[in-house]
Every structure is written in C-alpha cells, then in structure tokens.
Nucleic acid binder design. Structure first.
Length: 567
RNA sequence: UGGGGCGUCGCCAAGCGGUAAGGCACGGGUCUUUGGAUCCCGCACUCGGAGGUUCGAAUCCUCCCGCCCCAGCCA
C-alpha cells in the first residue's frame, strides 16, 4: 500500500478533513452525508457532491449517510425518491443500511422547538407572509419586530401545539426563531422554523400538518446522525450562522460543522432543477432521462459510464469559485473509459452503395476482425463480405481537396479487415446525386495488406448490404447553443437558447450483423464514428442506438478549417 | 450602496514567504489496417490592479477594480 498514491487531487475541504482526522477531532472519525430533496432527478452537479461526500468518507476510513431532505411535501414525489436511490447506486456508491430521512426526525425536531419556545427563543407569529416580508427590511435597512414577537411562553406553547393539532389553516401562523431583526445577515432576522401545510407527506402521511424549514431541520438532522462534516454548496454560506445558532441553542448530541463548495456549471447545459423541470414539462426533451439531459438518468441512457462521471468529478476539483467547466472534459472522460472497454463494430450511418465489379455474385467471404485493439482478451469475430457493400457517404468525394485521403475516382483505399478497392466509376441520378460507386478489388489484399508492399492512405469501414442489420440511430448535439445561459438578460430566457438541432434521427443505418439483438445498454465503438449504445427503445426487429460521443476527429477539424479558408 | 464569498494559462485547478504542479483544449512530431488510441515535445519571467513590508511576495499589509450569493411560510 506504499507509493501507489490514491490520486485524489488536494482541495480545501479534503485539507480540513485531513487536519481534523490528524488532530483527533470527532474521535478521528469522519461521517458525511448526501442529502437530496426528492423533488427532481439527480444531475451531474449532484454527482460532484456525491463523489465528494462518499469519496471523503472512503478516503478517511469513514462513512457517508444517505438522507432524504423531505421537509416540503408540496414538492416531493415517490418517482424522484426511487430515481435518486437508483442513480446513486448506479454511480457506484453504497450507503448500506444508512438510509435516513429528515422526516425520521419530525417528532424530535418538534420537541426541540418546544424547548426553544420555553427558553423564550422562539415564538408563534401571526403576520401574513406578505407582512413578514415587509417586516424583514431590506439588504440595507434593518427589519422591524413583529407585534407578536413578545407573546408569552404559555401562549406560544398553546398556539404551537394547536398548529400541530391542525386547528389553523395554511399560512395562519408560523413558528419563528427569536434572533435579531436588525442582523445584517437576513437569515438571522427571526427565520421561520415551521409553517402550516395541510398536505400529506410521502412518508408520514397525515400525521403532520406543520413542517420544519430546511434551516431548522438540517443541522439537527446532522447532529442526530453524528455527521462530522456537513458539506453543501456556496449559496448556503450565509445560512451557516443560522445552522450554528440552532445547534448552539439546542441540546444536540453532536456538533457537526458546515462547509461550502462551489456548485458545478457545465457549458452548453443548465443545472437548476427548475429549468430541467421546465425542459421536461414543456416538451423540449422526452423526459428526465432524455439522453440530452445533464441528469444521471439521461447520461446513463446516453451511454456515459458511471466510472467516466466519477473520473470527471475528480478532475474538475472542488473549490469556492464560480466556474464553467468545458463540456469537452466530460467527453474526454467518457472516451477514456469507453476506449478501453467498448467492442469495435462497423456500422454505416449514411450509406453509399458500392458494387465490387470483379467480385463474384453470390459469394460471401468471412473476414476476421479484432474486437478491441486495446484489449487482446476480447478476441476476434468474423464479418461477412460480398459483392454489394455500403460505405459512409462522407468517405467518398468526387473532387477531393488535397488533404482528403479517402475514396475518390481512380483512388485505392482499404476496406477494414477486407481488401483494397479502387473506384472505377461513379453512378449518379438525374439530379447529379451520387447513388452508387463501381469499384474493383484486389484479391491478393485479403485481410487488408498488400503482399507487394503497396500502401493506401485511408482505411474505410463498410457493411455487406445483404447481411446488414437496419437500425435507427439517434445523434445528439448540445442542449443549448451557447455555453453560458446564466446571464439571460434583456427579457431572454434560457429557452431562447435551446438548440433546435440537439437531436438528429437517422432512420436506416446499416450495421454489421454481429450487432443484431444487442441488449439495451450495450455499448460499442462504431469504428471511425464514435461510441454508441443500445437505447431502451430498441427492439430486436427495430434496433435503436444512441451516439454517446464521437471519436476525436482531426479530419473534421481540417475540413472545417478549409471551409473557413474558402469562405 | 448592508452582509457573505471569489479573482493563478482558452477551460478547470494545485500552490499557504524561497522564486508558477497537473488535467482538458490547442500546436508540432512518432506510430498506426479506426484521420481513433498510444508515445514524445511545446504551451503563464507571471498570479485582477496599484502601492507597501521583506534579501525574497501568487502567498503578508493597504487601497482600488471586477464577479457571484442573500430580502421563500423553497431546498
């Protein structure tokens, strides 16, 4: 175990935890938690938090709890509960038997509220929501105290008990902490602890009609579980004083500390649950698991391996500054793991018919192809070759520019694992569109090498027409057409920047026969094109693939540069 | 303009008084039956700016500039 460094890059939170462990704080123990509210699907930003919390625990011999922060029944749904647990497991983390809920603590929280009331540190306020807002003051002016602020302990106790008993309608009263209406930190201007909500809760049913606010529930939940490091995002920084106030004024069993880090922003997409919900509800995408979504469900369906997402989260680091991460880094992480694991196959997305004139009609050759050059243990397969084939339309140009190495009239190229072929004629339709290529092959080059040492500059993928499997292929582009949509401004919303071409469907691609019947989720590299996976919509009689990510394409760069030069 | 944060390469990000890690991207080369992968090489005399302290400053001090968050009975 020496020398082989667990390559976790340093970050300020890790430094704090390491220091605490070294100093024997919390008995040298580390207990973190991942506390989602079940009000939407998890996205790649949550993955950053999950990796941080579970990763820290693992690194320092501690544990990470899973806790649903279910304090607001109006927004929470079972569908989200299920998807969240499923996604965390898929990402590769295990909370064993440590599944908790803020709602597990409702009774305890209620008793603590009673303690605060008895200590004169909380009161029932009967101002309306609007009035409370007015009384709160502004960023630059102090607030005013509510006329109900000095109710007696017994009156507060009576009112609060009746709030719980259901004697009041929603909004009639709230319980507030009595702190400081003039605090420069607005969170301390008598924050609401409980509100009345006559709504069934997915776990507690009709038992409660008052629900604790996040601020009142979170720290105590942490304390109850013995959390040592409570890690959240930067927008909670101003809440830390309140987090501490509750813990300091209540008889809690442990003393957790809150630390904040910057949330992830990824270029060309959005991360807020509100916006993701809009994309789903307004039909811009097919659902939370649409492969274009930055949700874990979407990325999984897209074919992104969990390992790639974990690696990505490690690469981006953890800091306090607001940042915008290149989408390219995620794609790099995806290719990196797929390159090692994905079996190679040949598929033609945009078929161009090729007839090998000197290849006997009806003859079929079985050629040996390597399944994965990165992994010798994955072996070989055979691929049928015959007189009529398909190649990629992009692999032929009648009048090729200098740097184009692929097929063109009179030029010889290699068909991967098969033969050298030379284009001898081009067949066009009445519109001048190329419909077919007539070629000849060199039987001596079987397998792809010429015994006379002849070289070709390009190797093309191909599929035998008679053996091809038809498939629908879904190609994806970025959800948004600009990297950063946060500055919406001047009346625009992120909807105005939704990429109308984020999905392209190819109805009749031609796949090599080995792909027939591949199960949903199976991932392949289609040689020279990219990584593709079988979509859950796929059926044996009508296969559907998603393009996970393209291969790095230096030719595309050259072609684009030429285009710019020409324009 | 009250309070809380943050400013190091195109994008992330180490660094914490001893003379700018790393990754992605990018450029060049090697190799190649994927214009993939691999492997080499290059890529911040400078850390938002200006002063100051010091033998020595991205790191300490002062002032200035810029960006983000907070006025839910959301989390």
């Amino acid at each position: 175990m020496n020398g082989v460094e667990t390559r976790v890059p340093p970050n300020f939170i890790r430094t704090i935890v390491a220091e605490d462990v070294k100093n024997g704080k919390n008995g040298g123990k580390v207990l973190t938690r991942f506390p989602p509210e079940p009000n939407g699907y998890l996205h790649i930003g949550h993955a950053k938090s999950i990796c941080l919390n579970f990763g820290l625990a693992a690194e320092f011999g501690g544990l990470c709890n899973f806790r649903f922060d279910d304090t607001n029944p109006g927004k929470e749904e079972i569908e989200y509960v299920d998807s969240i647990m499923n996604d965390v497991r898929w990402l590769g983390f295990d909370w064993q038997d440590r599944l908790y809920h803020a709602s597990d603590y409702f009774e305890r929280l209620y008793q603590w509220a009673l303690d605060l009331i008895k200590g004169g540190k909380a009161y029932v306020d009967s101002l309306s929501a609007d009035q409370i807002r007015e009384y709160r003051g502004t960023l630059t002016e102090p607030g005013k105290e509510s006329p109900f602020r000095n109710r007696s302990v017994s009156e507060n106790l009576d009112l609060f008990e009746r709030m719980r008993a259901g004697e009041f309608v929603d909004g009639e009263h709230v319980l507030r902490a009595k702190i400081d209406m003039a605090s420069p930190n607005l969170n301390l201007r008598d924050p609401v602890m409980y509100r009345i909500r006559h709504l069934p809760h997915w776990r507690t049913g009709d038992k409660w009609c008052i629900y604790p606010m996040y601020d009142y529930a979170h720290g105590q939940s942490d304390a109850l579980e013995g959390i040592t490091h409570s890690i959240c995002t930067m927008e909670y920084e101003d809440h830390r004083a309140l987090y501490d106030w509750y813990l300091d004024n209540l008889d809690v069993p442990s003393r957790p500390r809150q630390y904040e880090f910057a949330r992830l922003n990824l270029a060309y997409t959005v991360m807020s649950k509100r916006k993701l919900l809009q994309l789903v509800q307004e039909g811009y995408v097919a659902g939370w698991d649409d492969p274009r979504m930055p949700t874990l469900a979407g990325m999984r369906r897209r074919g992104y391996p969990a390992e790639a997402i974990r690696n990505f989260c490690e690469r981006i680091g953890v800091g306090k500054r607001e940042s915008m991460v290149d989408y390219g880094l995620l794609e790099f992480s995806v290719r990196e793991v797929l390159n090692l694991k994905a079996l190679r196959m040949m598929s033609v997305l945009r078929p161009l018919k090729v007839v090998i004139e000197n290849y006997p009609e009806g003859q079929v050759d079985q050629l040996e192809a390597i399944n994965n050059p990165e992994d010798a243990s994955s072996g070989v397969r055979s691929v049928p070759f015959s007189r009529v084939l398909y190649i990629e339309r992009d692999d032929f140009m009648e009048n090729p520019p200098k740097q184009f190495f692929r097929l063109s009239p009179g030029r010889e190229v290699r068909l991967r694992y098969a033969y050298f072929i030379k284009c001898v004629d081009v067949v066009k339709d009445e519109n001048g569109e190329v419909t077919e290529l007539r070629c000849v092959y060199d039987p001596a080059t079987r397998g792809g090498d010429s015994p006379d040492g002849r070289k070709v500059k390009a190797t093309l993928h191909w599929v035998s027409a008679a053996h091809a499997v038809q498939a629908e292929i879904r190609l994806y582009d970025t959800l948004l057409n600009r990297p950063d949509v946060s500055d919406e401004g001047s009346g625009a919303t992120f909807r105005d920047f939704i990429n109308p071409r984020s999905l392209e469907v190819i109805a009749d691609a031609k796949l090599e026969p080995a792909l027939a019947g591949a199960p949903a989720g199976a991932t392949y590299q289609f040689e020279r094109l990219g990584y593709f996976c079988v979509d859950p919509d796929s059926k044996p009689e009508k296969m559907v693939f998603n393009r996970t990510v393209t291969l790095r394409d230096t030719w595309a760069k050259v072609a684009k540069a030429n285009e710019i030069k020409r324009a």
